Computed example of a mutant assay.
Amino acid sequence: MQNLAWTPLRQGCRQFPRFTARKNFGSASFLRSNSTAASAAFKELNWVEYLEIRRRRRRWQTVFTIPCSLAGLFGGAMYFGSLETDPMKPIMGIDPMMFYGGCTVICMGAGYVIGPSLGSSIWRVINRTSMAKIDARDREFYKHIAKNRVDASLQSATNPVPDYYGEKIGSLRQYKQWLRDQAKYRRKAVLPEE
């Protein structure tokens, strides 16, 4: 009797995988259609569009650098300007006004460093729907950059490699110019003019 009670449950459990396969939850055609849709979505982002997106991202980073630098400057000036100082007691052997002025400049530098990261983070949040496509193109773009850039061992302190990471590339014209600059630098470094 107990065996008869479990029989419908066993049959229902056996049929569950078939049911899900019929609903395209795990079938090969469902996975194939998803991969086809993903590759089609990837193909939508061509190089011209990608480089335009890079240019906009760089603009966001630049725009956020300015207010972050100013916020660091004003924040440092307000904090260090409000401290009471004795001009006769040096701080680490430095005049207090010079020391606090240097600390204010360091606060401004911290804002300058934080600004691009903050701008890039906000840009990523705003464009989160297309970030998978952009990240895939980023990886491919950086492979091109790594393959075509000049070897860093050829540079000197007075003659650095131009735009080693390709940060300023924002269009196909700028990419072609970057390739020409790299080739010109490579020729000069390998065959120095006498």
Score class of each variant (00 low, 15 high):
M1H: 12
N3P: 07
W6G: 14
T7M: 15
P8S: 03
P8Q: 01
P8E: 04
L9Q: 09
L9R: 13
R10T: 14
Q11C: 02
C13V: 11
Q15G: 11
Q15T: 12
P17C: 05
P17F: 02
A21L: 11
A21I: 06
R22Q: 11
N24I: 01
N24S: 10
N24T: 00
F25E: 14
G26K: 10
G26T: 10
G26W: 11
G26Y: 09
A28C: 15
S29G: 05
S29I: 05
F30C: 14
F30W: 09
L31D: 06
L31Y: 13
R32K: 13
S33P: 05
S35A: 06
T36I: 07
S39A: 04
S39P: 00
K43I: 08
W47G: 12
W47C: 14
E49R: 12
Y50W: 06
Y50C: 05
Y50V: 09
E52R: 08
E52N: 09
R55Y: 13
R55C: 12
R56Q: 11
R56D: 07
R58D: 12
R59T: 13
R59F: 11
Q61V: 01
F64L: 03
I66A: 07
I66K: 00
C68N: 03
C68M: 15
A71K: 06
G72N: 04
L73D: 00
L73R: 01
G75D: 00
A77W: 01
M78F: 12
Y79G: 11
F80N: 04
G81N: 10
G81W: 09
S82Q: 03
S82N: 02
S82L: 04
K89W: 08
P90R: 07
I91K: 08
G93V: 03
M97E: 10
M97A: 11
M98I: 12
M98Q: 13
Y100I: 01
G101N: 10
G101V: 09
C103D: 11
T104D: 10
Y112E: 05
I114H: 06
P116I: 05
P116Y: 10
P116N: 10
S117W: 12
S121I: 06
S121A: 13
I122W: 02
W123T: 02
R124E: 03
R124I: 04
V125Q: 10
I126L: 08
N127K: 01
R128W: 06
S130N: 05
M131P: 00
A132S: 10
K133A: 14
K133F: 13
I134W: 06
D138Q: 05
D138P: 07
Y142M: 11
I145N: 02
I145D: 04
I145C: 03
K147V: 04
R149L: 13
R149A: 07
V150N: 07
A152N: 13
S153A: 15
S153D: 15
L154P: 00
Q155G: 05
A157M: 13
P160H: 08
V161F: 00
V161Q: 05
P162A: 02
D163R: 02
D163V: 00
Y165C: 04
Y165I: 01
G166I: 00
G166Q: 00
E167F: 05
E167N: 08
S171M: 01
S171V: 02
R173H: 15
R173S: 13
Q174W: 03
L179H: 05
R180V: 14
Q182N: 11
Q182W: 07
A183Y: 06
K184T: 15
Y185F: 15
Y185P: 04
R187Q: 15
K188A: 15
A189R: 03
L191W: 08
